[in-house]
Simulated scan of single mutants.
Amino acid sequence: MDGGGGIGELVPTKDSDDVLEEVTLVNDVDLADNSSNGFVIDRHRNRLLLAVGDLLGNRYSALVAYDLSTWSHLFLTVLSSHNDVAVDTQGNAYVSDAKGGKIWIVDVNGKLVYTIRSPLFTSPGWYNNFVSLNGIVYHPDGFLIVIHTFSGFLYKIDANGDISSKVTIIDVSGGNLRFGDGLEFLSPTKISKSKTQYGLLRELGISIWEF
């Protein structure tokens, strides 16, 4: 939710299944004037992890966790920048940093424990790093995939829960992924990518186990 610092649900209206109505689930006054950005549902722990922040001024960023049953506030971890979030089987959260070109690791209790950095996260040319790491997803086989928005690079990262994570670039055929935004696994071998500039979706079949 833009400017509300909360969470909304889209539900069909009574008159038509084609028309969706936004219903506010959480209106967090402590996060007012910030935007709710990437989120992920951690079903094993019945919680929702949400990246929030001031996107335009970059004056505030945080990872917030809410209980899915009561919508009570579980923790808030302040970060210097953010974008999207993924969660592994242990409950560690991985938050992409679109400004700083790194990935924050926040443990299951909300403690910031590590930061993943790599020279590969910085693309040649300053203009290619204005918006860097963006959409991020976790695969059950134990790795992350994250996209670099302005360069279009797609990275595979070993999700070890610490700074030892190995980073490699995934070779993608069929066109550039520049301006890539959100990512989501459609199956163990297919991933979809949204495009910031045009609001488009693209399905990718990637041999991500060859690295």
Rank of each mutant, 00 (worst) to 15 (best):
L31H: 05
L31C: 08
A32Y: 10
D33H: 09
D33L: 12
D33R: 13
D33P: 08
D33M: 15
N34W: 13
S36I: 04
S36P: 08
S36H: 08
S36K: 11
N37R: 12
N37S: 14
G38N: 07
G38K: 10
F39C: 09
F39A: 13
I41T: 08
I41R: 02
D42G: 10
D42V: 09
D42N: 05
R43P: 10
H44I: 11
H44R: 15
R45H: 11
R45Q: 15
R45I: 11
N46S: 15
N46M: 14
R47P: 07
L48P: 03
L48A: 09
L49H: 04
L50T: 04
A51D: 08
A51H: 04
G53M: 01
D54S: 05
D54E: 09
L55C: 07
G57C: 02
N58M: 10
N58S: 06
N58F: 08
R59D: 09
R59I: 04
R59L: 13
Y60M: 04
S61Y: 00
S61R: 02
A62W: 07
L63E: 00
L63I: 07
A65R: 00
A65P: 03
Y66F: 04
Y66R: 06
Y66H: 01
Y66P: 02
D67F: 06
S69L: 14
T70A: 12
W71Y: 13
W71T: 14
S72K: 13
S72Y: 10
L74E: 12
F75A: 02
F75G: 09
F75I: 06
F75Q: 00
L76D: 10
L76R: 12
V78C: 08
V78N: 12
L79I: 08
H82S: 14
H82A: 06
H82F: 12
H82E: 15
N83L: 01
V87M: 12
V87W: 04
D88C: 11
Q90R: 14
Q90D: 15
Q90W: 14
N92V: 02
A93M: 06
A93R: 02
S96R: 10
S96F: 02
S96A: 11
D97M: 05
A98Y: 04
K99F: 15
K99D: 12
K99T: 11
G100D: 05
G101R: 06
W104G: 01
I105G: 00
N109C: 05
G110E: 01
G110D: 00
L112C: 00
L112D: 03
V113C: 00
V113D: 00
Y114R: 07
I116M: 01
I116T: 01
R117T: 14
P119L: 08
L120A: 05
L120W: 11
L120P: 03
F121E: 07
F121P: 09
F121L: 09
F121D: 06
P124H: 14
P124M: 02
W126Q: 15
W126A: 13
N129E: 11
N129C: 03
N129S: 12
N129R: 05
F130Y: 13
F130A: 07
F130L: 10
V131N: 08
L133H: 05
L133P: 01
L133G: 06
N134V: 07
N134C: 15
N134E: 09
G135S: 10
G135L: 12
G135Q: 05
I136Y: 03
V137L: 01
H139M: 15
P140L: 09
D141F: 13
D141R: 12
D141I: 06
D141A: 08
D141K: 14
F143S: 03
L144S: 02
L144H: 10
